[in-house]
Design a protein around this nucleic acid. Structure first.
Lengths: 208, 208
DNA sequence: ATATATTTCAAACAATTATTTGAATCTGTA
DNA sequence: TACAGATTCAAATAATTGTTTGAAATATAT
């Protein structure tokens, strides 16, 4: 429990930024929650914007370390796809309400800044590349780059909806709750939708 | 060109709010662009928050009026699905870069406020209901509510990805441009993915 | 133990910004 | 024309907030 002020600031920062956004969050709030003086932020990080950026990458790196479970490179592309979808959807029930990084991502999508680039490089692009590899294996060999890309986007789009559209979901389907059971059903659903699409693509290319 | 100050304010508001978000937007900016005095906003709308809300619903209602093209209630559920997807995707190329309302929606998703409720009631729920009806027709009769819902979400998720993840897309696939041609291909793709999933669902229910 | 560097803190600073105010101007009406 | 209400405007207000400052406290190294 001997964390430095700098660490305490970094830890207090993310959930407040995630909850209220960069602009609405005051350095006072963060400093208070960290039990630190206001000027500690400028002392350790220079200014608010840089502090925000450092806090985000700090937590991204940390969450990457935590989620480095075996990737089972060997298994079939089908089960690797399922696994990727599961990892993404599971964030909802595992992270419970928080999902700080996803909320930050939302804000950066609505209002892109320098932090968006860091998020893309640190965890979006790697995951997208992994997904693309899987789809390349699954789809017919004569699929174009564009076709593969569209199938990848279909996977991401379906997953992200549940991660990012919670405020819509809770209003449109108040009884819809993503518990452990629903999570499994979602993973099954999205996986079979994507695999059905893959099968249809094979069918189409066979006819030609 | 004889628009009242109130109208000029409403028209100048949305794109600035969409671009910078509620908090970052200053009433000064909007008043300047409208060629109005700052106090006009408080005079006509009471305060900034209410002005923001009124501006959003004003433009939602207006855009609903503009997009009230024939809905062809009679045609097949397949073509109605395709049509719904097309309408949604076409926003990108039709609205060109702006897409003010979608940007506002993004911000409300990242940081929900009273405006989110109005957006849900005014155009999200109606569209969702329409989609649900279509999916009910397409899917096997013994599909559960939950299954139908998941299929609907798959449609929305895929569409919304292109509407909302532009900042990610432009970074991850700099050469990916959604022009007229790509729009058509996207509509085709999403439609066939969803119909393939529907077909698979029929297949599954037949076996049981 | 002393000197040096680092870190913390309360207070001040400077800039921004939503909102109010009260006079001036315009608009329609009798 | 003259009057009443609505609207516009420049200026003032009040509150917030990121940043700076310089002294005090703490840690580090000699």
């Amino acid at each position: 429990m001997s964390s430095t002020t700098k660490e305490k600031l970094l830890n207090s920062a993310l959930d407040i930024f995630a909850e209220s956004g960069f602009k609405s969050t005051t350095v006072q709030q963060i400093a208070s929650r960290a039990g630190a003086n206001i000027s500690a932020i400028n002392y350790h990080f220079g200014n608010k914007a840089n502090f925000y950026a450092e806090a985000v990458v700090h937590h991204i790196k940390q969450s990457i370390l935590n989620n480095q479970d075996g990737d089972e490179e060997s298994s079939s592309p089908e089960s690797r796809l399922r696994n990727l979808i599961k990892q993404r959807i599971t964030i909802i029930s595992k992270d419970k309400p928080p999902m700080f990084i996803e909320k930050i991502l939302m804000q950066e999508m609505a209002n892109p800044g320098p932090v968006m680039d860091k998020m893309v490089e640190h965890f979006i692009r790697p995951e997208f590349n992994k997904l693309t590899e899987i789809m390349e294996e699954l789809l017919p060999d004569d699929c174009t780059e564009s076709e593969i890309r569209r199938h990848s986007f279909s996977v991401i789009g379906q997953c992200n909806f549940y991660l990012h559209a919670q405020p819509i979901l809770s209003r449109i389907c108040p009884n819809f709750e993503i518990n452990q059971n629903e999570t499994e059903q979602l993973v099954d659903h999205i996986t079979s939708v994507c695999l059905a699409a893959v099968a249809a693509e094979h069918e189409k290319h066979r006819k030609i």
